[in-house]
């Protein structure tokens, strides 16, 4: 019996190790490529069919920080986007969730159903329309960053499900008691519910924070060729797809690492809250 268990465990370990290797292999490749110099005197910046560079060099990283490209601007843009979207979106979601969870008003179910239906329309459909709408306010091209923040935040109220689910689990008796003591709704919301909702606030903020790092489609549409308004995803995708950027592949990898590392570290630190959020969201739908 014992040996059987031991064999079982050994197999499990082997499977887990294989899985880990498969999972980490692309990242390993990415890191290795980022150390391959693009300088033809040293090595070559295009695609190659080996993983380990022949000479390790920091040329790609140097390039990104050298000011030859606007990488730092794109990076700064993305951080601004992420911070603002994260903060404002969290506020919006909390407001909507509280109203829908705690208050009963005319049109509440209609609103929820209506938003659910809206969510079934594909987002890209409205891209061209949003572009011209933002253009009317001067929020495209050089104003693309505030424009993107506005659009991302404006519609974020529809993503209330997880947060409302969490609020629903906070006993209503607490509210009732406070109201008997004469506290207003706003007071209850600000001083009771919000402090109790730290996990869900962190979850909401974290998810909102991560999204702008991958936003390629809409961001490129709104920036409309204005280089200084690109986020990292828009700017760097060009290095892989467009023929204007030959031999930029290793630089793409280096940039990718610089983006992935801080985001990953942040994610790992707050992983606990993320798990709580997705699990809660999954179960309640």
């Amino acid at each position: 019996m014992k040996t059987k268990k031991k064999i079982g465990n050994a197999i499990t370990y082997i499977v887990l190790i294989i899985i880990s290797i498969i999972w980490l292999f692309p990242f390993f490749g990415l890191i290795m490529q980022s150390f391959r110099s693009y300088d033809p005197a040293v090595e070559y910046g295009g695609m190659v069919d080996y993983i380990i560079p022949k000479h390790f060099s920091l040329d790609n990283y140097r390039f990104l920080f050298s000011g030859e490209t606007n990488f730092l601007v794109w990076y700064k843009n993305t951080i601004i986007l992420a911070v603002f979207i994260s903060a404002l979106q969290t506020v919006m979601v909390l407001c909507v969730s509280y109203a829908l969870s705690r208050m009963r008003f005319k049109g509440r179910t209609f609103l929820m159903r209506f938003w659910l239906i809206l969510g079934m329309f594909p987002g890209f459909l409205t891209m061209i329309c949003l572009y011209f709408l933002l253009k009317e306010f001067g929020l495209t091209q050089s104003g693309a960053i505030p424009g993107l923040i506005l659009v991302s935040v404006a519609s974020s109220g529809m993503g209330y499900y997880v947060c409302k689910g969490f609020f629903d689990t906070i006993p209503k008796a607490l509210d009732e008691a406070a109201r008997i003591d004469g506290a207003s709704r706003a007071r209850i919301f600000l001083t009771m519910i919000i402090p109790m909702s730290k996990p869900i606030i962190i979850y909401t903020a974290l998810v909102a924070f991560m999204a702008p790092w991958c936003d390629y489609v809409f961001a490129s549409y709104i920036a409309f060729g204005h280089d200084m308004s690109y986020n990292v995803a828009v700017a760097m995708t060009r290095w892989v797809w467009t023929n204007d950027y030959q031999g930029y592949f290793t630089r793409f990898c280096a940039g990718g690492i610089l983006i992935a590392v801080p985001v990953t570290i942040l994610f790992m630190c707050l992983q606990r809250y993320y798990v709580e959020g997705v699990t809660g969201g999954a179960v309640k739908g």
Binding site: G45, G46, M47, V48, D49, N243, Q246, F249
Partner: peptide
Amino acid sequence: AVGEATNCAAIVDGTWDSGAAQD
């Protein structure tokens, strides 16, 4: 695209890639 060709010995391409091809 020269920059995307691996293990390449010959490529049909245009002058805009001449620098990359020389590399």
